[in-house]
Design a protein around this nucleic acid. Structure first.
Lengths: 122, 122
DNA sequence: GATATATGTTGATTTCTATCGACATGACCG
DNA sequence: CGGTCATGTCGATAGAAATCAACATATATC
C-alpha cells in the first residue's frame, strides 16, 4: 500500500517533468480516461473476442469455419487433433464470445461463424 | 502413444458415421487442411496480434493511443496504473506484434498505433 | 427400456503469462 | 565525469488457461 503510493507519487513527478516540454494532463485524468474506456460499450466484448481468438486451436477453428462455411464438432476435432473435451471447451469459448453459432441436429453439433467478429481497437 | 492412436481411430469411425448422412472427407484431409492454414501467410501474424490484444491492459493501451494519437510511456503507465516494468513489457508485446510504433525522443519514448492492426479471421 | 454414440462437465495437472522488486542501460545536465 | 532520470531486462511468484481421463447428459436405434 505504501509502495503503491510511493510509486504513484514518483509517476506524478515524472508526468510533471514531461509536461514542461509538452502538453500533459493530471495523473487522475489519465486514470479517469482509462476507466471510461474500460466501462465503454465495446471494450469488454472486444477483449472477450480477442481472448477467444488468441489461442492457436481456436483461431484455426475459426479459419476452418470461414473456409468451409459450416462444420460438425467431429470435423473440427479431426482438424485440431485434440481430445473431444478440449474441442468442446474451445468451441464453448468461441460461442460465448459471440464468434460462432451452434446448431444441434440430433446427436451432431454444427458450427458457423457469426457476422462482424473482427477485433478492432475500440 | 497407444492412447493417441486409439483416440484417433475412434474419431475416424465417428467421421465415417457422419459421412453416411452428409458429405465428409477423410481424417487426414482435415489434418492437412489445418496444417495448410497454420502455414499460411496470415495465420501466425494474426495469432500474434490477437494474443497481443487479448490482455486488458494492452487493449486499453491500444484504445488510449487510438483516442490520443500519440502518448509517452509515462502517460500510458499513468492510465494503466501498473509498474513501469509491466508497462515496458506490455508495450514491447504490442510493438513486437506490429500493433504500435515506438519513437525515442531523448529520455522519453512515444508510442503510436500502426495501420491495419485489426484481427480478422484468416 | 437397454444399448450405443455424440458431446458437455469436472477436476487434476501442466503450461503459459501478468506482475513487480531489483538491477542494468542509455540519455541528459551541471 | 558524476548524478539524476526514463525505461529495458531479469528472475521469482502468483494467477490464468490449455489439456485430458473420467464421468455425466442428451440423442438415436432396436
Amino acid at each position: 500500500m505504501m509502495a503503491v503510493a510511493a510509486s504513484r507519487a514518483s509517476l506524478v513527478e515524472r508526468l510533471e517533468r514531461r509536461s514542461e516540454s509538452s502538453g500533459c494532463c493530471d495523473i487522475s485524468q489519465y486514470e479517469r480516461d482509462a476507466l471510461e474506456i474500460r466501462r465503454g460499450a465495446r471494450f469488454p466484448a472486444t477483449l472477450k473476442r480477442a481472448k477467444a481468438l488468441a489461442d492457436e486451436s481456436r483461431l484455426l477453428a475459426a479459419a476452418l469455419l470461414k473456409r468451409h462455411g459450416e462444420m460438425c464438432a467431429c470435423e473440427i476435432q479431426a482438424a485440431m487433433s485434440l481430445s473431444h473435451p478440449t474441442v468442446s471447451h474451445h468451441m464453448s469459448v468461441l460461442a460465448d464470445a459471440g464468434i460462432v453459432a451452434e446448431e444441434r441436429r440430433g446427436k451432431w453439433i454444427y458450427y458457423r461463424l457469426k457476422d462482424r467478429i473482427e477485433v478492432g481497437v475500440p
